[in-house]
Write a protein that binds this DNA or RNA. Sequence first.
DNA 1: CTGAAAGCGCTAACAC
DNA 2: GTGTTAGCGCTTTCAG
Lengths: 339, 339
Amino acid sequence: MAKITLKQIAETLGLSIATVSKALKDYDDVSPTTKAKVKALAESLNYKPNFLAQSLRNQESKTIGLVIPEIVHHFFASIISGVINAAKKKGYLVIVLQSSESYEFEKKQIELLLDKNVDGILVSLADNTVNYKHLSNLIESGFPIVLYDKISKSVHCSKVVINDQKAAFNATKYLIDSGCKKIAHVRGPLKPQTTIDRFIGYKNALKEYDMEFDKSIVFEASNLSLENGQDIAKEIYENHKEVDGVFAFTDLTATGVMTGLQKFNVKIPDEISIMGFSNWLITSITSPKLSTIDQPGFEMGKKAFKLLYKEIQNRKAKVEVEFKTVELPAVLVIRESTR
Amino acid sequence: MAKITLKQIAETLGLSIATVSKALKDYDDVSPTTKAKVKALAESLNYKPNFLAQSLRNQESKTIGLVIPEIVHHFFASIISGVINAAKKKGYLVIVLQSSESYEFEKKQIELLLDKNVDGILVSLADNTVNYKHLSNLIESGFPIVLYDKISKSVHCSKVVINDQKAAFNATKYLIDSGCKKIAHVRGPLKPQTTIDRFIGYKNALKEYDMEFDKSIVFEASNLSLENGQDIAKEIYENHKEVDGVFAFTDLTATGVMTGLQKFNVKIPDEISIMGFSNWLITSITSPKLSTIDQPGFEMGKKAFKLLYKEIQNRKAKVEVEFKTVELPAVLVIRESTR
DNA sequence: CTGAAAGCGCTAACAC
DNA sequence: GTGTTAGCGCTTTCAG
């Protein structure tokens, strides 16, 4: 287990360290015989280059950072998985850090990663991040950063997002097509772009189909809990009898609304259709099973890494990098909570 | 953003690199005046030591590896979160890798981590890992490894586990105490210790309360799906009418059994009590809400890191390391699916 | 109190 | 073809 170094190989073979190094890397200027000898010995000794030394020398660590708002979260966990998967294929390892939706943490985590000499960072903005200096400074200085999921239009870099607006549009359209006449929306907190986009998609669909937009049936979830959804259900049941469809910005809230309505003996989907968003595990456990929109987390993680990887390569090759934004399609998953 | 090095500070101050290095680390043999000067400049230049260089020099990377069977999994995600959290407090970063329950991957991931010079590794065994050479060799060579959750008794190192046996005992006991006369068990695949322990706990409780152990009502889940649970429900409903309680080794399966039984109009919990295991998010969404056992994933992650950290410290200080196994209590969470 | 020097392990330009 | 040398940035004896 004692680490084998080039030096040891060189010594036992009576060669110089440099030659050994070059032999191992198949440089043309090493004789085939020496190459063979060196490789054989390296193999038998199970030589592994010291990554730290290599990194120090090459100024690259083959490690990237991943800043994620919440780890214990189906969608984000899928992203982590996708990133790690894609990274592994290119010989990169990933350091995962959690911002807990806090701007302060986010900033600190990024610094930690920089201190560790990661080659690039993948970031999903914390909900309360409003200042983007910590990112734009980095990007301007030429450091590879890719934003995923929760992005900001004011940060100039590559991004990968789900087309929330379109997805929300389609979800609402589906409700309309299936006969809903009065569709309520439960939106998330004001800040994240995703929430805004889902709201816009909802509004656009109403407009497109000449349905009146009624502010009084747009509810804002104060937190991400089942109970909160149930409170909203109560509000709908008591004050908005005309509602026959609900599009909620996330599955848990949708589930809360559904179970809340069921307590009042409202029949789902016969009386009210419910549409969620995210396609979490819970959607197939509810009764009826929740119709929702699938967010391709794994794909997103993969794509985000690929963008970052390309940027790292380009930067290394001094090629002009151009930022691009990739939109991943989110597909409707129709189950039983919609007509 | 251009990286500041000791050299630059030394040059602008007309000092030697060595002195600057020492000043920054508060060595006693540097005059207070120089210290002050150096620190002031370092501060204003926002000097950050180069981690790679430090690591190479000090032979420690302040990074640990975490090998996890599945990332997209509530319990494991909590563990990741706990590990990262605890690690951060000690200035450690964590590289996450997924074994996907494959022995081959597990082995490879560990090698990758070693190549990256991590200071220690946290491992939860893949279900199909049967050979522990890759671990025991490492451990014998003095490399810090801590096993968590899915462990093996044949690997000699520190471990942190949930007392599955006791938890299962308590779960079964609860069913008995609440009046169940014939309790079925749905167990997991034969391999992982957790599955075995839960089964043993179930058996022990039966014995303790003088209830007959009946092999015909112990079912083995072939996979971790809702459908599989439902198939078992069918089997119970059709061939084991006397069953009035089910203890399943995991929540999803329990939910499957519950919804499966409900399809036959079996009243839960009046006719049959259902007890799950894990306390996933889904438990509070089912109807009735699932009684279960809470597995403290976050705590486990924290504890696992702490054990590893201590071992790293001890190894560095050449202190004799002694392995210990920490058992975390899992608590019963009684909801509505049990009487 | 300060600095020169060696070295962690590896790479690459340059000489031989 | 092979080896020498310098150096990535830092730490730590050991001289001065």
